[in-house]
Design a protein around this nucleic acid. Sequence first.
RNA 1: GGGCCCGUAGCUCAGCCAGGAUAGAGCGCCGGCCUUCUAAGCCGGUGGUCCGGGGUUCAAAUCCCCGCGGGCCCGCCA
Length: 638
Amino acid sequence: MHRPWRSVLEEIARVVSSSVGIEFEKVLKGFDVPKESFGDLTLVLPRAGIDPSKGEEVRKAVEGCSYVAKSELVGIYLNMWFDRARFVEKVFRSFVEAGNSYGVVRFPSRRIVVEYVSANPVHPLHVGAARNAALGQALANMLEAAGHVVQRRFYINDVGRQVAILVLGIKLLGELEPPHGWKPDHWLGMVYAATNILMELKKVREELSQVVSDERRKELIDRMDKLLADLARIREALPDAVDKLIDAMDRVDPEREVVEIARKYEAGDPEVKDFVRKVVELCIQGFKQTLDRFGARFDVWDWESDLVWSSEVSKIVEQLSRSPYRTLYKGVPAIDFSTLLKDPNIREKLRIPKGLEVPPLILMRSDETTLYTVRDIAYTLKKFRDFNADTVINVIASEQLLPQAQLRLALYVLGYRKEAENLIHYSYEMVQLSGFRMSSRRGRIVTLDEVLDEAKTRAYAELEKRGNPNEEIAERIGVAAVKFALVSVSPNRPVRFSWENVLNFERNSAPYLLYTYARTRGILRKAEELGIATEPRKLLEIYDPSFANDNARRWRLVKMIAELPETFVRAVENLDPSMLAIYALKLADEFNSWYDEDPVIRESNEGVRASKLLLVHAVSHCLATTLRILGIEPLERM
RNA sequence: GGGCCCGUAGCUCAGCCAGGAUAGAGCGCCGGCCUUCUAAGCCGGUGGUCCGGGGUUCAAAUCCCCGCGGGCCCGCCA
């Protein structure tokens, strides 16, 4: 395991530990990276549990450590300057020896299921799903890099009202073939929204036909206007279909039909089953195109309906019904968690916030159809079972906190304690649109497809400006820009979507990182063309370890190279890939500054040039490693 | 009413979980740098009651409490 930074710190900590008799771990915690003028490393004495009066003693001990060239005691701080040449040697050796695996640290391997995206198959994926996809893939990549065995799953929510509404729309339209030029999920999304709106309009009109107060009447008319405006927008795109739906809607009782479709589907009625599956599959087909483009891959696609038909869900209902926590809630069977939640240990084990009140989990509707969270219990168990998983991670927006808590509690009640403890709700805040609220039911969404298209267009324009337009490269840059924008902010901070934000191509962006990487590759390529050896092992034979002695930028870069494994460990422990994104940006910043003032190839001293080339290799590798984890494949040229 | 998350420069965000020395980037704005490894770059300048108030501490953007503002949730939806 190559962790140069860590091993240097450990060496110093050992010396300190034995000199003052404070535990090694405690000393390690006392280290901090100070401002540059204060050295490379500082030991905050009180934090390490060391009395500042013993400072001089510790300082003398530390000076005996081979990596410390100089030390200075300033108040409670013991500032240390490293022996740069020794440190450089350590870092370069680690880098070369580790080869491709430098920067990632293997953890004890676990089997982990990551469920992500799992968008409702009734409309195209929107920017919210994109954040999920970006986070989920980065998370899965990161865990894999850490040595875990990861399985990626997509849960197809084909049971329930939403799909039934879409199916009704398709049925009324009488065709399951998107018009020419339409991506299937986009078309279905329109049909879904139109059907939804028409159903609501019908309800509003019915209420209006009865006697209601003037105030209510005003409200209803207002709502009707809004619905009509949304409908008009859809009609612009699909006039024939909408007209046909308007017409057909008059002849049916849509509410009844929807309930009927949902009920028959759950019951496994062969005809309905066949038709619903066809519709949903069409939507999934559209999803797959987009997800593929976005780099979100899945090992398994699970159909929610399969769980219902296989009676796995009813078994859960049955088991829960026998539980002592069973109660009646508004006349239907439910599970009451309130007694369970009085036990603070259970709360802690199941990671349920201390003040959170969890409402009862209703086991089934009065018409005996199933409910989402109950179906999810069966699904969770399936995920654990199928993959023999140690951990299951659900990447789901924070708005689902409550049902996810119910899920863990229900597993606990069922006796699946290990599963309950190892089910992680990987929560993230949603993407907000400034200006308007997305509503898939109204057909008002910003789709991932249009965001990616726009990103590509902008990247293409930029490439054109530089005189080498290239479709494929534009696509990769565009997709990377969007992904990075969504994954580089920490998950529990809401992302405000704006085109400027997501399609930023300047600093703090994927294009900036890709550009920087391409620069590193450019140097190595050019060196080879000039007949300069660039093979790291060869360079290690002739390099000059003192090349950073009098150069702040070279030195900073070496330290940053040493830092990657530590950043990686922290990112894995916190399940936070955004830490890697932040690291990559800082590394790129430092590299670009260095690049500008300190030429590599024109360096006349062979040893120094070898050191510089090693540094370029290392930066190149660290950028590539972080980018790949974030789901971005670096480009050799831009 | 209760809960979760967020509040740091005009804007977008690091730093907070593991408290430490004058709080960091980018965008924007102003001014420089392309006969020298890719200017999607570099250098300099501008810009901050770290939402407010208490508390803990030798030390608080960071921990605790109380407020305020914003997003989300509290459904026989998913």
